[in-house]
Design a binder for these strands. Structure first.
Length: 721
DNA sequence: GGCAGCCACGTTTTT
DNA sequence: CGTGGCTGCC
């Protein structure tokens, strides 16, 4: 590695990069350049220590993080003119386990062509199990059952183990569900997300020779966001690293916010106990925020007892004060946000410099409305999920069935989409028929005549359907993936079913077209392999991965989604007891610590300015609640906070206009309504439009390009034409 | 088998 | 207040 690469690092980062042998724990504060350190470390191993790239494994939690890491490493290697065709294995826990299981899972009695169940599939499966063992979903909540099973899997407790150790009536009942669920999965060669990890660990434990093979491949292991690992993931890494002990984990215990889904923060806190020879490196210089922001964040996190100590510092002394604002209600809160953004925009900021963070997704709606009224372009992260849309899932189910003739969940999903007159009863008979003969569903489908209990016309439909699936399976190698999926889409009758002339159908069709675009990426692979890769990627993908950082819009997202991101100005809304911290955490000291870490994550996203907002009254589920201000506000040193108050009109702030007795609606009605129906206007973002209705301050405008929008006459930057 | 209306419920989220 | 899931009727 050219020495100038190392010179780009600070001393602590350099130490992390240069310690290539033995266990290393990198405690990396928010904004301290940890991804950078990991990428450099990988490049250093390859270029300086002559480690083969294929002997390096880097594990992340999200596809996005993996992608980012890949890009950085490729860039570093390319700078040193090292061929980047030969890359380390970089991926999420789940994708890496899938890779291993695709090669080895037959040892555990599963087919290598196993399907992967997502949360919806899992729930469908659980509900079936409930029926099978005649369990009343009113007494036991299927979602809760699924949660308990998932938790067990994260602790590496398999079904029989769970059954042995169940003490209470509840546990015994769940253990019956668990056993039946797992049996069903096995019959269909289906694995859920938790199985992917648990089975890989089981494989390694039951087959030492397999473990050793992978230990020899992955001689250098790096794990990002180590504070978010659960027990199963911990064990997986522990096994792989056992032989060579070259394990480097990076994390920040202050930012662990996923305990609720099984992450165990003790994994990082105990690293030095697990690996007594571990070298500990602390990255404490923050390159993102001002000192004031860091001090505020520290004020919050320092109240937590269960944490390692570290000092975060920055060269950016001082900075803006933290602005706090008490709004009367959530509507005023959101309008304050919008007006502040507009005010700051005049100072030359970009829309993408702003993010609004909230505790729960339900808070996004009112913010969205305020953005619309003010004409601010915005993007909600984590709202509607593309891969969860019915039409997308249906098409994928067709493909999954073509790939795995035993995929019962997929079959049931699509046998009647489009309508073929096959209902639950018929499918039940069909499945039983297959099971009795130990044949796969598609094969028996063309052969069901022996089953006397199914009406002639239905047999015909089933047989045609199965012929279709078989035919598609045969030709899948002869077409490009995109063309193949299109063929399935059309010939299954699904296209015709969607395009029924309705607007909604048109939209759904568009979504399928979007899916085809995704498939185009696999053009270079022959279809059987491309199809496999495609289904794999799609099964393990999530929509937050698609956050387009460059999109010119204000971002709205939950505090959880914000981890790893940074913005110039950060608004945190709903800082009230019961919201942040969330009501569910008020009674548990541990959960309260997690809420505090969440707040810490929120504050440390900011480069320049933080706004903390709360309301005196808030509408929750239709009734008005009045929460007291969040305890986290008190944790921030007082001298760092500037309280925004109603001020005289002159400083141009919308909210300064108002004293506390005027309501926001009356306020808005005052200056406006020189707009009339039928007038033409122009908006800097939405373009030209026509006013359809003007009711008080609220204008409904049809924009020729952006469509129908409701805007506030007093706030939106409209020009008459 | 399909659709309409009613009721229950209501963190956070990745894979 | 909204939504989504399930029941009951056609």
């Amino acid at each position: 590695m050219p020495t100038n690469l190392l010179e780009k690092l600070n001393p602590a980062q350099r130490e992390a990069v240069e310690t290539t042998e033995g266990p290393v724990l990198i405690i990396a504060g928010a904004g301290s350049g940890k991804t950078r350190a990991l990428a450099f470390r990988t490049a250093f191993l390859v270029l300086e220590k002559n480690v083969y790239p294929q002997n390096i494994l880097a594990v992340t939690f999200t596809n996005k993080a993996a992608q980012e890491m890949k890009e950085r490493i490729v860039e570093l290697l390319r700078e040193s003119s090292f061929s980047s065709s030969n890359l380390p294995l970089i991926g999420t826990f789940h994708s890496i386990c899938v890779k291993i299981l695709r090669r080895e899972i037959d040892r555990l009695g599963y087919k290598k062509s196993f399907s992967i169940l997502d949360t919806q599939d899992q729930l469908a499966m659980i509900k079936k199990v409930f029926k099978e063992i005649s369990l009343n979903p009113d007494q036991f909540n299927p979602k809760a059952a699924l949660g308990t099973i998932s938790k067990a899997k994260n602790e590496l407790i398999d079904a029989s183990h769970f059954a042995k150790n169940s003490g209470s009536y509840y546990e015994e009942t769940i253990s019956r569900v668990y056993l039946a669920y797992q049996k069903k999965c096995r019959e269909q060669s289906a694995l859920d997300f938790d199985d992917l990890i648990m089975f890989t660990v089981k494989l390694f434990k039951d087959f030492p020779e397999v473990l050793e093979k992978y230990q020899n491949i992955f001689r250098h292991i790096m794990v990002d966001e180590y504070q978010d690992t659960n027990h199963a993931q911990y064990e997986l890494i522990h096994l792989l690293a056992k032989k060579y002990q070259n394990i480097c984990v990076v994390g920040d215990d202050w930012q662990g916010i996923y305990a609720f889904r099984g992450a165990n923060i003790q994994n990082i806190l105990n690293f030095e106990k697990d690996y007594p020879s571990a070298k500990v490196v602390k990255l404490e210089q923050n390159y993102r925020s001002t000192q004031n922001i860091l001090d505020a964040a520290y004020g919050v996190i320092s109240k937590n007892i269960n944490r390692k100590d570290k000092t975060i510092w920055t060269e950016k002394k001082g900075g803006h004060l933290i602005e706090s604002f008490e709004a009367r209600d959530e509507r005023e809160e959101s309008e304050y946000v919008a007006s502040e953004i507009q005010r700051e925009m005049k100072l030359g900021k970009k829309f993408s410099d702003f993010v609004v963070l909230y505790r729960t997704n339900a808070q996004s709606r009112i913010l969205e409305e305020a953005m619309l009224r003010s004409g601010l372009p915005y993007r909600i992260i984590g709202g509607i999920k593309f891969y969860q849309r019915k039409e997308v899932k249906d098409i994928l189910a067709y493909l999954k069935l073509i790939q795995n003739f035993n995929d019962q969940i997929s079959l049931e999903r699509i046998i009647n989409e489009p309508k073929r007159g096959i209902g639950e009863a018929t499918i039940g008979k069909w499945i039983k028929f297959s099971k009795d003969r130990n044949l796969n569903l598609v094969e028996t489908g063309t052969n069901l005549k022996e089953e006397k209990n199914i009406a002639e016309n239905k047999l015909d439909y089933i047989s045609k359907f199965c012929d279709f699936i078989k035919r598609m399976s045969e030709i899948k190698g002869s077409l490009k993936l995109r063309e193949f999926i299109e063929k399935v889409y059309i010939e299954s009758g699904y296209e015709k079913y969607l395009l029924d002339g309705s607007e909604e159908g048109e939209m759904r069709h568009e979504n399928v077209m979007e899916l085809l675009t995704v498939a185009q990426k696999y053009e270079e692979y022959p279809t059987p392999e491309g199809l496999e890769l495609f289904l794999e990627e799609v099964a393990l993908i999530s929509d937050t991965d698609n956050i387009d950082k460059n999109s010119e819009a204000v971002h709205l997202m939950t505090l959880h989604s914000a981890k790893g991101l940074e913005f110039t100005n950060v608004f945190i809304v709903g800082l009230e007891e019961g919201i942040l911290p969330h009501s569910r955490s008020l009674l548990s000291p541990q959960e309260m610590e997690e809420e505090r870490r969440l707040m810490y994550v929120g504050i440390t996203r900011a480069k320049e300015k933080i706004y903390l907002l709360f309301t005196s009254e808030r509408n929750i589920y239709g009734s008005v609640q009045s929460n007291s201000p969040s305890r986290f506000l008190d944790d921030i040193p007082e001298h760092l906070i500037q309280v925004a108050r109603p001020k005289p009109k002159s400083d141009g702030k919308l909210f300064s206009l108002r004293n506390k007795t005027t309501s926001s609606t009356t306020n808005h009605k005052l200056p406006t309504t020189n707009y009339k129906d039928g007038e033409r206007v122009e908006h800097p973002i939405f373009g030209k439009g026509l006013i359809i209705s003007a009711k008080g301050d609220v204008l409904t405008i049809a924009f020729s390009k952006a469509g129908l929008k409701k805007l506030s006459a007093s706030i939106a930057p409209l020009k008459k034409m």
